[in-house]
């Protein structure tokens, strides 16, 4: 469904953040993107919806070339790609409801959005999503009154109300505690399954990625160095991605845990030591 061909990004300073990335994401597949800081994970995600303009290569969504779209076409395309951010990126002085409804901006005209007169169907959907992420009672709270985990749930609802085909998720758990991190990851993966969404999840935490996501792509210095199943990660692969280090403790030990959620309880201490 999503296809990247030789996607390249060179910043005006001369730094090459992406060196010709090829990637294919079929419909409904969730994929984790791992790699050290500065490997170009965020750049890659932002090049897909062109918050960062790629300098070369193509990105196509269902056969539509995103990299060649004009302003209007890009807005249409962005509606189909929901984005979830690292520091939540909620508009802090708007209420929870306004934040969720802001996901509909691509569908609603300017004056309707200015007077906050969204179509009732959007409002219904917003309530349903808030209910789904467990924040139904919070809708008139201001976003900056919420805790980190709650904010990220609002961020998820905002991305889903766009009715996307693809989720772009940028470090969803980086500012959260270990328990909330897992809840958020579980929520994202469940929602993707319910709605048949594909997702690209940038994540630092290798263990967390293995726990929830079947396919892992490793990025190093703007190049894909690993692309395979999550239990294919070995110390060698991690050394390839991150550099020399003792990786034994980082890799999920329990290969027969299907969903991985229960199996990792034994790793709990190690996990908390990691974060």
């Amino acid at each position: 469904m999503l296809r990247l061909e030789g996607l390249t990004k060179r910043y005006p300073t001369g730094d090459e953040a992406l060196k010709g990335v090829d990637l294919e994401v079929p419909k409904g597949q969730v994929l984790a993107l791992i790699g050290p800081s500065g490997a170009g994970k965020s750049t890659l995600i932002r090049c897909i919806n062109r918050l960062v303009e790629p300098t070369g290569g193509r990105a196509t969504l269902d056969g539509m070339n995103i990299t060649a779209l004009g302003v209007g076409g890009l807005r249409q395309a962005r509606r189909r790609m929901g984005m979830i951010f690292q520091e939540y990126a909620l508009v802090e002085r708007l209420t929870v409801m306004e934040n969720v409804l802001s996901g509909r901006l691509g569908y609603v005209g300017f004056w309707r959005s200015w007077f906050r007169k969204f179509p009732q169907s959007d409002v219904d959907e917003a309530f349903r999503l808030l209910d789904r992420v467990g924040l139904a009672e919070m809708c008139d709270k201001r976003a900056d009154e919420l805790s980190g985990g709650q904010r990220q749930r609002v961020g998820i609802a905002r991305a889903l109300i766009q009715d996307p085909a693809l989720l772009l998720v940028d470090e969803p758990t980086a500012s959260l505690d270990p328990k909330t991190s897992r809840q958020i990851m579980r929520l994202i993966c469940e929602l993707c399954e319910e709605r048949g969404l594909a997702a690209i999840i940038n994540i630092h935490d290798v263990l967390l990625a293995q726990m929830f996501v079947p396919r892992i792509v490793g990025l190093r210095l703007g190049e894909v160095v690993y692309d395979g199943p999550s239990d294919g990660l070995s110390p060698d692969v991690l050394t390839e991605i991150y550099g020399e280090e003792d990786w034994e403790a980082t890799i999920k030990k329990d290969p027969d845990g299907d969903d991985g959620v229960d199996g990792v309880e034994i790793d709990r201490e190690r996990l908390e030591g990691l974060i």
Partner: peptide
Amino acid sequence: EAIEATGAS
């Protein structure tokens, strides 16, 4: 950026 990503004008 988050608002931009929703496809807003």
